[in-house]
Design a protein around this nucleic acid. Structure first.
Length: 311
DNA sequence: GCGACAG
DNA sequence: ATCTTGTCGC
């Protein structure tokens, strides 16, 4: 059963005359933190699920258009733009197998398979992957290049419909299928792969770069453009500087100021590499803020999407 | 007062 | 990620 069906099942459990809060639905899905991602997912299923109009934010405000009118018909007291005292109508007795909790367990299992030893020290080739989106249609690109000259050797593109929304912490369940398809379309396996997203710098120590590295059995490095987890004590001085990011006191990656921008990138091992080597090899391919292989894959995926859009 | 939640 | 215009600077 896919995520959207699981969400539909939950929402369908909300009885007429009652409402449900985002946080409680997220809880029923197995991760309270997923609440922030639900409005978008609810909009996606709303066509086939009228009960989605019974879902409210914690402050009693509606998510979907038409919610207040629908609730009025159901006999829920609406005042102004919100449901006053929504708590009184709250439904919480959801029956669920908590799909996100299951996925978290898969990540934990995957984390145990991660190898934090160097599988490469001097890669001959490097590759980068990235995804662009048209709704839930993913366009993934993979670029293979010479690690020394940074000349492109080969490119591949793949289009895949995804059935999983973007939820922080669960990115791999959305992007892994398209990325794998693009990666496998390359004429050769790269010695090292850069992935757009974190590696072990992840709540379950298993971000998309780790999962991809395990699945494809190659060394991978995760490159996050924004913070996800970890403690950072020291400050990053200037361009080219890096500071460790720790989880439980252990160095899991680095915040690296790769460009003039004050926003660093977050480097962490995906698989078959140490944090230190990941930092060194990333430095070697950063001509701008983002490693070249990823930057090129990003450009490729985006251009492909745009070309399709105005055709 | 308490939070940093990738793309 | 995507939606968007002009604009500042190398």
């Amino acid at each position: 059963m896919d995520f959207y069906s699981a969400l539909e099942d939950l929402v369908a459990q909300i009885p007429a005359g009652k409402i449900a809060f985002l946080g409680d639905i997220a809880q029923a899905l197995g991760d309270k933190a997923a609440a922030v991602a639900l409005p978008r997912a609810l909009a996606r299923i709303s066509v086939s699920c009228g009960e989605a109009k019974r879902v409210l934010k914690a402050d009693g405000s509606p998510i979907l258009p038409g919610t207040l009118a629908a609730l009025k018909r159901d006999g829920v007291a609406v005042s102004g733009l919100i449901v006053e005292g929504a708590e009184r109508f709250a439904f919480r007795e959801f029956v669920s197998n908590r799909p996100l909790q299951r996925l978290r367990n898969i990540q934990r299992k995957c984390a145990r398979r991660v190898v934090l030893r160097d599988g490469v020290r001097k890669p001959r080739t490097v590759a980068g992957v990235d995804v662009s989106y048209n709704e839930d249609r993913a366009i993934a690109a993979a670029v293979l290049m010479d690690s020394e000259t940074l000349h492109t050797i080969a490119e591949a593109i793949a289009e895949v419909d995804v059935a999983f929304p973007y939820i922080p912490g669960y990115l791999a369940f959305r992007e892994l299928p398209p990325l794998l398809t693009a990666l496998r379309s390359l004429p050769a396996k790269p010695s090292l792969l850069f992935v757009d997203g974190h590696g072990i710098l992840h709540p379950a120590k298993c971000g998309i770069a780790a999962q991809l590295g395990i699945t494809a059995k190659i060394p991978t490095i995760g490159i996050g453009k924004s913070y996800l987890v970890g403690e950072i004590n020291s400050k990053i001085i200037g361009k080219g500087a890096a500071v460790p990011v720790r989880i439980g006191g252990r160095i899991m990656g680095y915040a690296f100021r790769s460009s003039e921008s004050k926003h660093p990138i977050f480097i962490s091992p995906g698989n078959m590499i140490t944090p230190k080597t990941a930092l060194r090899l990333t430095r070697a391919v950063c001509l701008s803020r983002v490693p070249e292989p990823i930057r090129l894959a990003h450009v490729m995926a985006t251009e492909k999407r745009k070309r399709k859009n105005d055709t």
